[in-house]
Deep mutational scan, measured.
Amino acid sequence: MAAAAAAGAGPEMVRGQVFDVGPRYTNLSYIGEGAYGMVCSAYDNVNKVRVAIKKISPFEHQTYCQRTLREIKILLRFRHENIIGINDIIRAPTIEQMKDVYIVQDLMETDLYKLLKTQHLSNDHICYFLYQILRGLKYIHSANVLHRDLKPSNLLLNTTCDLKICDFGLARVADPDHDHTGFLTEYVATRWYRAPEIMLNSKGYTKSIDIWSVGCILAEMLSNRPIFPGKHYLDQLNHILGILGSPSQEDLNCIINLKARNYLLSLPHKNKVPWNRLFPNADSKALDLLDKMLTFNPHKRIEVEQALAHPYLEQYYDPSDEPIAEAPFKFDMELDDLPKEKLKELIFEETARFQPGYRS
């Protein structure tokens, strides 16, 4: 834990890192770190609560700039109880001085990944967590956004079992017609939660990839272990087919990539493993919904509104309290091709509203 900075004593240090967030945020305490930044909790002297502050230093890398800009653009436009918001952003007053960006968010005690390492969940908890994931996802999908990296560590939890989806750095506007060349190379989302079509096709992607990830998360809540822990690309596919069985001819016809289709045709026939054999203690309604989410063919996979209306979630289902976005989200430009200098300018502009004396 960093010592509390005395008023006016300059930035606090946390594990050798400068955290320049005073005077409003003090009493910093280390939480963890990701690929390009550290997260601390801090005391907000204005709202009198502890908050989470993520320090991001992305400006050396085009990919990190892209992810940072995506996350900020999306989260500043989203407003939903099951999606983490941005409360404040701290950065230098000029673009030349801006080396880091500090993002202030609600402090959540833990995440689903940490929880599943230590606790076996009751059916009631599984049901409530799944409902909140789908409630947040309904809003995301209504904005025409794909999260693309749903996994237990991106689901934040607090002691009252509130759940918030975080990390929109890989999110995209849904565009089933656009052929994202190089899709697989830039697709760094965790393999275990990846839909089979991501490994088999490169053309376009749809909201059904997020539903697949939610199915993987439900299976993990039922058993405290990942359902498809593939060691590499082909191993991942083999794990999936080992449980779902061989795809039907109709399902194979959806695979545009001939090499991928021929690979699947070359494999020995596998039978589907019954879900109640894998999860003998699970609620039968939970397994019915799991089956509809972990469907090989993305066109037959359940959609988020149908999933919310499934009998497993009937005690929570309330369409009048499951809000959607006001308007579909649009990125003005494809960020993939922009140089990091341009992305830095866009991050600077996007964060201006939090600067003292800002006038829109």
Rank of each mutant, 00 (worst) to 15 (best):
F183W: 07
K151N: 12
T181S: 15
P328C: 03
I31P: 01
Y36V: 07
A307N: 00
R50Y: 06
E81A: 10
S202H: 10
A42I: 04
D124A: 14
A143Y: 06
G245A: 06
M199N: 00
V104Q: 11
K54D: 05
E250R: 03
V18F: 12
S248H: 01
K114Q: 14
S122T: 02
V21C: 12
P229Q: 03
P280D: 09
K231C: 03
L218G: 13
D283E: 15
S41G: 04
F348G: 10
V51L: 03
V104A: 01
F348D: 11
Y312L: 13
W275E: 04
N297S: 12
F296E: 03
L343P: 08
K117V: 09
T295I: 03
V188S: 07
L146Q: 14
R277Q: 09
I53A: 00
D124R: 06
A327R: 04
T351E: 12
N27R: 13
N262M: 03
D149N: 12
N271D: 05
G242D: 13
P247G: 00
N144H: 06
Q66L: 15
T160G: 10
K300Y: 08
A325V: 09
L234R: 06
R261F: 08
E350M: 04
L116C: 08
I31S: 01
L130D: 07
L313I: 06
D337H: 09
N297Y: 15
Y25W: 04
L184E: 13
L155W: 00
L265M: 12
L338N: 09
L75M: 15
Y317D: 05
N253V: 12
L335R: 05
M13A: 13
D283T: 01
N123E: 10
I84C: 04
M108C: 04
A35V: 10
L222T: 06
E109L: 12
V104H: 04
P356A: 00
I256H: 10
D332W: 05
A171N: 02
L107K: 04
A286V: 02
L294M: 13
A35T: 15
F19L: 15
K151V: 10
K300W: 05
C166G: 02
E349P: 01
D20P: 11
Q97G: 07
A307Q: 03
I86M: 04
D288V: 14
R15L: 14
G169V: 14
A92W: 00
L241D: 08
L338C: 02
G182V: 15
N238I: 15
E322T: 00
G357Q: 12
G182L: 12
A143D: 14
A6Y: 00
K259Q: 12
L338Y: 07
C166N: 02
T26A: 09
D162Q: 00
E186I: 04
P274M: 12
I217C: 06
T295F: 02
K344G: 12
F129P: 01
M13Q: 13
D283M: 02
T160S: 15
L267R: 01
P23G: 01
A282T: 11
F354Q: 12
I84A: 02
F331C: 04
L150M: 14
L290H: 07
I243M: 03
A174Q: 08
V18P: 08
L244N: 01
I74N: 15
K259R: 11
R79K: 13
M13P: 14
K151S: 01
K138G: 12
N276V: 07
V39Y: 06
G242S: 10
P356F: 00
L107Q: 14
L75R: 01
E96R: 03
L289Y: 10
I217S: 13
K48Y: 11
N281V: 09
V18N: 03
N262S: 08
H180D: 10
I240H: 04
P339N: 12
K207Q: 13
L222W: 04
V304H: 06
I302K: 04
E109G: 03
L308G: 06
F331D: 06
K285H: 10
F59G: 04
F168I: 15
L155G: 04
F129W: 06
K54A: 06
L115N: 01
K151Y: 04
L121M: 15
D88H: 09
I324D: 03
F329H: 01
N281P: 00
F279R: 08
K259P: 04
K344E: 13
H239R: 00
L222V: 05
G230L: 00
S41A: 08
D124V: 14
L75N: 01
S266I: 08
P323K: 03
N253C: 07
N123H: 09
A9K: 04
A6K: 04
L290D: 11
A143C: 12
E314P: 00
L252I: 04
D291K: 11
Q355G: 08
V46N: 00
P229K: 06
T94M: 11
A309R: 06
F296C: 09
D332T: 05
Q355P: 00
D288A: 11
H232N: 11
D321R: 10
M333H: 10
I53P: 00
H147V: 08
L107V: 05
N201R: 07
R135W: 01
E349T: 01
D177N: 14
E350P: 00
E341H: 04
Y312E: 10
V101H: 09
M221W: 06
A307G: 04
L137D: 10
P93A: 01
K203D: 10
T185H: 07
N158W: 13
A282R: 09
L264K: 00
P298W: 04
I240F: 15
R50N: 02
S153C: 14
S248G: 07
I84G: 02
L121P: 08
I255G: 03
T185M: 10
D106K: 03
A7F: 11
V188M: 10
L244I: 03
K259H: 02
A2N: 00
Y64D: 09
E12M: 05
K117P: 08
A3N: 02
V273L: 11
P323L: 11
D177Q: 10
Y316Q: 07
C40L: 05
L244W: 03
V49K: 05
E341L: 04
N144D: 08
D251K: 04
V39C: 03
N123Q: 10
P196W: 11
V21S: 12
P58V: 03
P268D: 03
T295P: 15
P274Y: 05
L265S: 04
Y113K: 10
W212A: 07
N144V: 07
A352V: 14
I217D: 06
Q62G: 10
R353E: 10
L28N: 02
K340A: 11
P268R: 03
P93G: 03
G22P: 09
Y187R: 03
F354Y: 14
S266R: 15
L163V: 03
Y102P: 04
I86C: 02
C161K: 05
S202E: 13
M293V: 01
S266V: 01
L150H: 06
K285N: 15
L294V: 05
N123P: 04
H125R: 14
D20N: 15
L107T: 07
T351M: 01
F279W: 05
T118D: 05
L146W: 03
D179V: 15
P268W: 06
R194F: 10
D337S: 02
Y358E: 13
S202Q: 13
I95Y: 05
K48D: 12
N27V: 08
I103R: 07
T159H: 10
A195E: 12
I74K: 06
E322N: 00
K342T: 09
N253P: 06
F59I: 15
Y102E: 08
D332E: 14
S213K: 05
L218E: 11
L241N: 04
L222A: 11
I198Y: 03
Q355I: 05
P339Y: 10
L200R: 05
I53D: 01
F348R: 10
L258F: 07
P229L: 10
R353C: 05
C40E: 03
K285T: 09
C65V: 08
S202W: 12
Y64M: 08
K292E: 06
A7T: 10
I86P: 00
R353Q: 06
K270Q: 04
Q249D: 02
V14E: 09
G169P: 02
H178A: 06
I227E: 03
Y263V: 11
L289D: 04
G10W: 15
A4L: 12
Y139D: 08
